[in-house]
């Protein structure tokens, strides 16, 4: 089974979003902050008259690296009836998966294993497959508290 993946860099790591989860990749215009929201929620923005919640994946995962330069492009996904725009370091490529996701030899570390189902080989090298639900709904605890 081959699967189309959107490859993005998060905190310097190569990550893959299943293409069927990704609605579009947009350049976010103005982001309206949400006062008192957890840190990983950057704010709200509008896409075609729809409100999106903008998340910073790097803070949500808690992998550090939020100081990596970002190209302001975000990945729009939909989960639980809400739409989100995910900020990453940069959106790289769209590619085909070579084979199914497999566990990473040696493990991922607690923060990454919480949001990933394993790695997948692609033509451009291995990438972590992200689990959208846990990325969005269950942010890294220390990041939420920070």
């Amino acid at each position: 089974m081959t699967q189309t993946l959107v490859i993005a860099m998060i905190g310097g790591r190569r990550c893959a979003f299943p293409a069927e989860d990704v609605k579009s990749v947009i350049e976010t215009s103005a982001i309206v902050p949400v006062p008192r929201a957890p840190e990983y929620i950057l704010g709200m923005t509008a896409l075609r008259s729809q409100a999106l919640t903008v998340l910073d994946c790097r803070i949500a995962i808690g992998c550090g690296g939020e100081d990596h330069p970002t190209d302001e492009r975000t990945i729009v996904v939909s989960h639980g009836g809400h739409s989100y725009a995910l900020r990453v370091d940069r959106v790289d490529d769209i590619t085909e998966a070579v084979g199914d996701p497999v566990p990473v030899p040696g493990g991922l570390g607690t923060q990454w294993s919480r949001i990933s189902r394993g790695m997948v080989e692609t033509t451009g090298g291995p990438a972590l497959v992200l689990d959208m639900a846990s990325l969005i709904t269950c942010p890294h605890n220390s990041a939420a508290a920070a």
């Binding site: 409100a51 919640t53 809400h82």
Partner: peptide, 19 residues
Amino acid sequence: IKPLPAAIMDTELYGGSTL
């Protein structure tokens, strides 16, 4: 009025969003 995701609702400040 559109509903907000749980993470924002948890702030107990907002009831929804509009444009």
